[in-house]
Nucleic acid binder design. Structure first.
Lengths: 147, 147
DNA sequence: GTTCTTGCAAAATATTTGCAAGACG
DNA sequence: CGTCTTGCAAATATTTTGCAAGAAC
């Protein structure tokens, strides 16, 4: 008899979203879960566990499906590369700014910095759908190595 | 005898930046000056006056040169398209948020909304180089026409 | 005349799509 | 078995680059 060490969180998320539970998609969700910061397609592909092959195009396709289902948030931070993170702010979306290193490209969540309030400052008639706030520079490691 | 109606602002900017005063580059600066909001390469190319031909690749090259010279600021707002505006905030950079319409793609400067302060909230060791804050949704025109 | 700009074509990068084959439920 | 996923290749879109010819200083 095998004791389940932890629940199949990824599988549950997929099931609830009406998506099929394939090894590739579960792997992506687990990778995002462990990273706890937004990852690019490339970063995700590099972390796929041995035995799980998933073409990069299908990584995009999976992320697109997750996005539609509201499982992930897509962060764009000025370098024309999508980064994806699991939604974890109650509502959809990553409701905090991000820091992007211009040298190594890593993204970090600045969870302690509040997004500015904005809605009542836009004139009537506008529809607000998303907002993004990011800071770019050198992360500690790259700054230390004079990156 | 011809009275000069206005000074050659574009020419002066180019001269001071050490760039040659060609009709194409002066046209780009004038276009950005009149627009007073960030424009894409495509928007700039569409506005080139009759008689001024400038290959789109060279529009990019010119904007790149202006960027290096500190004449323009490059805004990236989540749709993977660069937008450029003349620097006009004293220091380099557009120190205010932007609104991008998800329907027509137009950018607007939200000059009345302050950028949040941030520097002392990032831990020591980080180097901050840029920041961007943008809001996306539907502009008044597109919202009215149910875009 | 030397250096900066341009035109044109081709490359580079990130992402998306078509379609037949395969896996899930 | 029908539908959702995948693999692979090719298409897209935006921006960048190489190089020879042309314009500015």
């Amino acid at each position: 008899m095998v004791i389940k060490m932890k629940k199949d969180i990824a599988g549950n998320m997929l099931k609830e979203a009406g998506l099929k539970r394939t090894s590739g998609r579960k792997a992506i969700i687990n990778i995002l879960h462990e990273a706890s910061r937004p990852l690019t397609q490339q970063e995700i592909s590099e972390r796929l566990p041995a035995g799980v092959e998933l073409n990069y195009a299908n990584v995009y396709r999976s992320l697109e499906a997750f996005l539609k289902a509201g499982l992930v948030h897509r962060v764009e931070t000025g370098d024309r590369v999508w980064r994806f993170a699991l939604c974890g702010c109650g509502s959809r979306g990553h409701c905090h700014p991000h820091f992007i290193c211009n040298s190594c490209g890593a993204a970090e969540c600045l969870r302690d910095i509040k997004m500015p309030g904005f809605s009542r400052r836009l004139e009537k008639g506008y529809v607000i759908q998303e907002q993004e706030y990011y800071i770019k520079g050198l992360c500690r490691e790259c700054a230390a190595s004079r990156g």
